[in-house]
Computed example of a mutant assay.
Amino acid sequence: MDILLLFIGAYLLGSISFSYIITKGFKKGDIRKLGSGNAGATNTLRVIGVGPAILVLLLDALKGIVPVWIALSLHYPLITAIVAGGMAIIGHNWPVYYGFKGGKGVATTIGVFVMASFFPSLIAGILVILIIALTRYVSLGSIVFMILTPVLMFVFRSVPVEAALMALLIGLLSIWRHRTNISRLLNGNERKLGQ
């Protein structure tokens, strides 16, 4: 029962759309109807600027950090903690408060991965920053992070195999959410950072 409550609480926390709330606060309207239409930090950057985007990024990452931290504090296995984080990601992507139309869960996934295994996340994050700096494709960097971090968890054996597999499933969920971005990347018409 406690695990079920943890998962439900993680989903409800994840369902809070900070990009929606902050954009509304700036009286710009519904973030899902502006810019790229995605309820996340990158679209917040496009619509209302750097400061709000950084705030959204941090708050969305916190949605992934908190459930994992709570689960580990309660001495649940790491895989349970990652599943709790996964529930927050599901909440972000399909939020109950906003008609189940949310973002792609990148920042929340970053929060989960950092809590689950810091050094693989750090290495992947540094590489992703370089990729985004060189290409200006945030989506490409996000996709690389989602695959590379779980792979590095396997390589470094920083987490149990079942936890790394769960992280990989979460990464694949994010890649699936990026399927339209992948199509645009392949077709050469994906929007670059700053466009």
Rank of each mutant, 00 (worst) to 15 (best):
L4A: 15
L4V: 15
L4H: 11
L5C: 09
L6Q: 04
A10E: 05
S17V: 10
F18A: 03
Y20F: 14
I21W: 04
I21N: 08
I22F: 05
F26E: 10
K28N: 00
R32I: 10
L34Q: 06
G35T: 10
S36K: 12
S36N: 01
G40W: 03
G40P: 06
N43V: 05
R46F: 09
I48M: 12
V50C: 02
V56C: 10
L58R: 04
L59S: 04
D60E: 07
L62I: 13
V68F: 02
A71Y: 09
L72Y: 00
S73N: 12
Y76L: 15
I79W: 13
T80E: 00
A81N: 01
G85Y: 04
I89Q: 04
I89N: 05
I90M: 14
Y97A: 04
Y97L: 11
Y97H: 11
G102Y: 08
G102N: 10
I110C: 02
V114T: 13
M115H: 00
S117A: 15
P120G: 10
P120M: 12
I123E: 05
A124D: 12
V128K: 04
I129P: 04
I129W: 08
I132R: 03
A133W: 11
A133T: 13
R136T: 04
Y137F: 14
V138P: 06
G141S: 11
G141R: 10
I143V: 12
